[in-house]
Design a protein around this nucleic acid. Structure first.
Lengths: 196, 196
DNA sequence: CTACTTTCTTAACCCAGGTCAATGCATAGC
DNA sequence: GCTATGCATTGACCTGGGTTAAGAAAGTAG
């Protein structure tokens, strides 16, 4: 299988690539495969690269008295720019694979070179950055004002895939509740559906 | 009073300004005063400018069945870059003054001109952007994993000024709880202090 | 197929926050 | 002075999530 096409596909979402550009992206791309439970980044490490998930699922979490607090799931086509990557300070988070993954890796230098070669990609990068920022905002809003039950229902709507491919205790952590509570919520939702 | 010095002071936090630069910033700066309850931005409007709070306090919130859901407070030296400003889509938020305010206003063109004139400011801008992004991350983490009570105590530590200058029902909204609950939390904290 | 591990569910009990209603308690305006 | 208004507190009651402990169900290895 020709992994190089993943990145080309990714950019094609935002922009039409010339053959030359596609070729260059292919040739420049660094792609690695990871196994389930492999780490992309550990607490205390300084991130030297950022990532783009081409296939699989990555979780970002930190430990609090041994408990995994999952902050985010990254799946197909999600870019990961660790805070530690931008600040160059030791990471407070872990990044680890929930599934076997295929992931593209980007370094600062290569990104800069790439953008100098293809300046028309600059606004795309900015756009992606903005989109990520806006997403975080929405997530925070929801988290603040919605009950766990509604949060779960929204997740079912917006990312139905996640609920099927990720163990529920991880979903619970992501929603900020205990696995038992998620179980009850699911029961409640099911009961309400029966009524109607 | 010479308002022009506010912005100069702001940049001096990050970088040492030459006299020429300081002079230019002063002369370029657009500053306005606002009264309590004035709006900087309303839901549905497209933000044409971004802001820097020089004096006073601004709240960002949205309405949900008539309820103010306060997402953020901006006080002295806090920059405000509305999502609507970057996306140029109608804002989902209101920005309004909790107190009489003195606020510096920035437009896209003027920022670009400024950065071209003083390219050494570019990394500062990036740095500020990163800092804001990191702050949001920390806030979300805390929000997800801490109880309202601990959230309030953290707020007391990190922004003691806020609690004193902003009505408590707004603090409650900011913490994601009802004013009554905040009242009980305060009572509880006070009771625990007496014990020790 | 069995044994083991991991994941999910259930039940019982506790407690913090939501809700509703009443009461204080300032401040502003008359 | 008095009243109206906005804000903070308190009490009573309810509900949903946390906690603990047990067991069921699903997946995996032998």
């Amino acid at each position: 299988m020709d992994n190089g096409n993943f990145l080309v596909d990714y950019f094609s979402q935002y922009i039409t690539l010339s053959k030359e550009e596609a070729q260059l992206i292919k040739s420049e791309d660094i792609i690695r495969e990871y196994e389930k439970n492999d780490f992309l980044l550990k607490e205390g490490q300084v991130a030297k690269v950022c990532f783009l998930v081409l296939k699989g699922c990555v979780k970002r979490y930190y430990l609090e008295d041994g408990e995994e607090k999952i902050m985010e799931f990254y799946t197909e086509n999600d870019p990961i720019a660790p805070v530690s990557y931008t600040t160059q300070e030791p990471s407070k988070y872990y990044l680890s694979c929930v599934e076997p993954c295929i992931i593209s890796t980007g370094t600062e230098e290569r990104t800069q070179q790439f953008l100098q070669k293809f300046p028309r990609f600059v606004p795309i990068f900015v756009k992606i950055g903005d989109a990520i920022s806006a997403k975080k905002q929405v997530f925070l809003d929801d988290f603040k004002n919605l009950t766990p039950e509604i949060r779960y229902q929204k997740l079912l709507e917006t990312r139905p895939d996640l609920v099927n491919r990720v163990p529920q205790y991880m979903i619970a952590s992501y929603l900020g509740i205990q696995p038992e509570s998620l179980s009850r919520i699911r029961k409640r939702i099911w009961a309400n559906k029966q009524k109607t």
